[in-house]
């Protein structure tokens, strides 16, 4: 379980997170929504100690993530908005291997994890492809595979669908469904709920650094326009 307690984080003169409390149980498919500047990205970057709280705590199964960032970053895989800026190698398999290499695993284990991760996103045949030659949707899937190779319990995706066309979007979402069905917790940060609200278990809306809505997506939809988020049914 990821547990966030009374988290505060200031950037310049702004309270980006203003005493936020939230917990996400294992295996949940959770949407994190809110207008720009509501603190979504800042919040998830605390989950794996990419940011350090001013006050408050973030724990994963009881361990404070700032005490053990390696465990936090292994258990919580993160995929960012601009896949092209997060790849470290020119070819697919070399990039996916980067995380496991940092864990110091032996080569056979790394190869096994790369193969499993690429199979999970249906890119098993593209191991030796050049990343820049892939489509946007395939690049997003390579980024997901890079996170999966750490064998995380949770996958956090920050605006993973921006700039993808409809088929690529559907394909990425279908792969997330399959991972969720296998028990991986999925946390999607987004301001666009189209195609997402039927898939998730839970919707958490942020505004000004606080949780203002926490419900099942079906229950939450009617309240969204008041929060400045488009109702995906319209």
């Amino acid at each position: 379980m990821i547990a966030v307690s009374d988290l505060r984080y200031r950037y310049g003169d702004v309270d980006v997170l203003d005493g936020l409390t939230l917990s996400i149980p294992d295996g949940q498919y959770c949407l994190l929504v809110g207008p720009n500047g509501s603190g979504k990205t800042t919040l998830v970057r605390h989950f794996n100690a990419l940011l350090t709280p001013d006050t408050g705590t973030v724990t994963v199964d009881g361990t404070d993530v700032t005490d053990d960032p390696v465990v936090a970053r292994t258990r919580i895989g993160m995929v960012f908005q601009h896949p092209r800026d997060q790849f470290v190698a020119a070819t697919v398999a070399a990039d996916v291997a980067f995380g496991p290499e940092n864990l110091g695993l032996d080569r056979d284990e790394i190869d096994r994890r790369v193969e499993t991760a690429l199979d999970a996103v249906d890119l098993g045949g593209a191991a030796d492809s050049r990343i820049d030659a892939l489509s946007g949707g395939e690049q997003a899937r390579v980024a997901i595979a890079g996170a999966l190779a750490m064998e995380p319990d949770y996958l956090v995706l920050d605006e993973p669908l921006v700039g993808l066309d409809w088929p690529a979007r559907e394909s990425v979402l279908d792969h997330l469904d399959a991972l969720a069905a296998d028990g991986t917790g999925i946390i999607v940060v987004t301001h666009d709920l189209r195609d997402l609200h039927e898939r998730a278990d839970r919707l958490v809306a942020l505004q000004d650094g606080q949780v203002v809505l926490d419900a099942s997506p079906a229950e939450a939809l009617d309240a969204l326009p008041d929060l400045g988020i488009r109702d995906p049914r319209c």
């Binding site: 970057r45 390696v70 970053r73 292994t74 960012f80 997060q86 470290v88 940092n102 080569r107 750490m150």
Partner: peptide, 20 residues
């Protein structure tokens, strides 16, 4: 700007001094 994004991505993937 690219450098800022890359550095967050490297840290999220446990960029270490002692990899395989």
């Amino acid at each position: 700007d690219r450098s800022d994004r890359l550095s967050v991505a490297l840290r999220a993937r446990c960029f270490a001094w002692n990899p395989t």
